[in-house]
Design a protein around this nucleic acid. Structure first.
Lengths: 117, 117
DNA sequence: GTTCCATATCGACGGACATGGATCTGACTG
DNA sequence: CAGTCAGATCCATGTCCGTCGATATGGAAC
């Protein structure tokens, strides 16, 4: 891979002139970048990533009491992570009596996966 | 989608007995989760996500002076974000005289894209 | 009612993060 | 050499994050 010479700024230029003309632009606008980054940020913690991994690979909804023993963290911490994933729109929950069941929202990761190619 | 009854904890149980047997496990071990989360965390900022988007869509290497005018942030802040992406193993840089050229490391996002499905 | 249980929320702590001004570094110019 | 420029680093600021103990909530069992 070599430097694209069309993008190489000219070495000599008038004082005050910017070093080069901008020729590249992001394909993702600010709003979409914000949405994509929100998902990425939610996945940017090992425990949350494993949580999503478990929920994604299991068809159906998983009881929180199943998730607690999988990680070496206190119950409030797990609850905090689940809330983060819910706030990011990746998972949702459903209560049944005492227990809460979590599941990955269908298509929640599609946009991100699509951007990632 | 309905609750998987095989996973539903029994309502009645002996005192001290856990509410249910764990039947789900993460396919991703702790180390891989850490590596995947590192990439996700680096992408968890709108500016860094747009940076990767620009660098990915442009074949070859892009001069920093091209990137600065694309965002409403100060130059040290942009440098900070580029360093984060470098530390995460997503991009690398190459100096040519006064200018620095950044590019996405080939395959840097493959593992993450593969996990995301 | 009371008691127990699963989960969520609160409050506080330490550490990490995003930001930008000032400054340093290294390279080109004259 | 001195002057200039691009980019990185340093430093200070305020904010957010991960963690967990304590507590609240709301349902089930007795």
């Amino acid at each position: 891979m070599s430097v694209d010479m069309e993008l190489a700024p000219k070495t000599k230029r008038a004082a005050g002139e910017p070093c080069c003309e901008p020729v590249v632009y992001p394909d993702v606008d600010r709003d979409r970048a914000l949405r994509l980054a929100t998902v990425a940020k939610a996945l940017g913690d090992p425990i949350r990533l494993q949580l999503v991994d478990v929920l994604r690979k299991h068809a159906g909804k998983v009881c929180v009491c199943e998730l607690v023993p999988l990680f070496d963290i206190a119950q409030p911490t797990l609850s905090h992570h689940l809330k983060k994933l819910r706030d990011a729109g990746i998972v949702d929950s459903e209560r049944q009596g005492l227990w809460a069941y979590y599941y990955v929202l269908p298509g929640a990761l599609d946009d991100f996966a699509g951007w990632l190619g």
